[in-house]
């Protein structure tokens, strides 16, 4: 079954939904595909206090619910499913979702980023059994217990602070001596006496996969090499994200870290393909910058289609 479209948007975080809102209002009839992690990273947060317009903050999932409803109100079509392959070598582009295929003249990529893991074998084995990347989902199961949060950025501070609601003690493990997190998030965490600071430390081992649960972590101080075993029952990993770009490998220009390279706003190396949000941003990575770049991609896409209709130079189809 083949479906022909003017515009497909992949991704349903702030970038994708803002692009959908703007292109729906421009009558481009966008089809937005939302995957398994629909709503993006904000679905895993609690109170968002830095999205302008909400002076008392808004819960991440509520904010995403509002954005989704707003895009739908103006006619954006939202479909659930995971894109399994794309072909950007010639127009119309092909988007494959299992047995279904969609053809589209333009594509906006807003696939975002997913949590990065430390890379220990035990980490995967114990995921969901004491190892977690989602404090709001799993913190509840660690009432009165000791846990660790790994990372030194805003998400690590937020998770550590949030997890003190449940845990008796939170060990904050960070490989450097200073934190990357914003001042306000650091101050909140530093003021919390349930947080034990394990700076200049890395986790060498998470025990014990054989038991199917977390029983301790083995820390190594990167300055003096000292090793410490800390008995605890949970490890929350908050060491950043990696862009979700495996679908586009060898088809779009990317940097060494796999972020899609954009030029002149949201344009990628393939005319007619635009990228917005965390998938192309390794600097700012905020809900508001993602939303802003979603708006840029929508306007760039709209102008591209207008130029195409008028036969202007930007619209020359790629020869293959």
């Amino acid at each position: 079954m083949s479906d022909s479209r003017q515009l497909v948007i992949i991704g349903s975080g702030p970038a994708g939904l803002t692009a959908a809102l703007y292109t729906a209002r421009a009558n481009l009839n966008p089809l937005l595909i939302e995957g398994l992690e629909a709503g993006g990273q904000l679905m895993l947060t609690t109170l968002v206090e830095n999205f302008p317009g909400f002076r008392d903050g808004i819960m991440g999932p509520d904010l995403m619910g509002e954005m989704r409803a707003q895009a739908e109100r103006f006619g954006a079509e939202i479909r659930q499913g995971d894109v399994t392959a794309v072909d950007l070598r010639k127009e119309p582009f092909r988007i494959v979702m299992g047995s279904e295929e969609i053809r589209t003249r333009t594509l906006i990529i807003a696939t975002g980023a997913s949590a990065r893991l430390i890379g220990l074998p035990a980490e995967r084995a114990l995921m969901g059994h004491g190892v977690s990347t989602c404090a709001t989902c799993d913190g509840y199961f660690f009432k009165g217990q000791e846990i660790a949060v790994v990372g030194g950025g805003d998400s690590a501070m937020e998770e550590a602070t949030f997890l003190t609601r449940f845990a008796s003690k939170v060990h904050l493990v960070h490989r450097r001596g200073d934190l990357r997190a914003s001042k306000i998030m650091q101050e909140r965490a530093l003021a919390n006496d349930k947080i034990v600071w394990r700076l200049n430390n890395v986790i060498d081992e998470i025990r014990d996969p054989a038991q199917g649960q977390v029983s301790s972590i083995l820390l190594r101080n990167v300055v003096d090499g000292e090793r410490t075993e800390v008995p605890l029952s949970g490890v929350f990993v908050a060491i950043g994200h990696r862009p979700n770009t495996s679908l586009f490998t060898d088809q779009l220009e990317m940097d060494a870290h796999g972020y899609i390279l954009t030029h002149d706003g949201s344009r990628t190396s393939v005319p007619g393909v635009f990228a917005c949000g965390d998938v192309q941003d390794r600097v700012y990575r905020q809900a508001i910058t993602a939303a802003g770049s979603g708006c840029m991609a929508a306007i760039d896409c709209e102008r591209y289609l207008e130029a195409l209709a008028q036969g202007l130079p930007e619209a020359v189809p790629i020869e293959n």
Binding site: L36, E37, M127, G128, H129, G130, S132, C134, C137, D138, F141, F142, G212, Q213, G234
Partner: peptide, 23 residues
């Protein structure tokens, strides 16, 4: 020993035969 949700457990004859964590 559930440590994260969503978790799906499949029971057969009173025993857990499958366990799936996450979306």
């Amino acid at each position: 020993a559930i440590r994260g949700i969503p978790t799906l457990l499949l029971f057969k004859g009173g025993e857990v035969v499958e366990s799936v964590v996450g979306l």
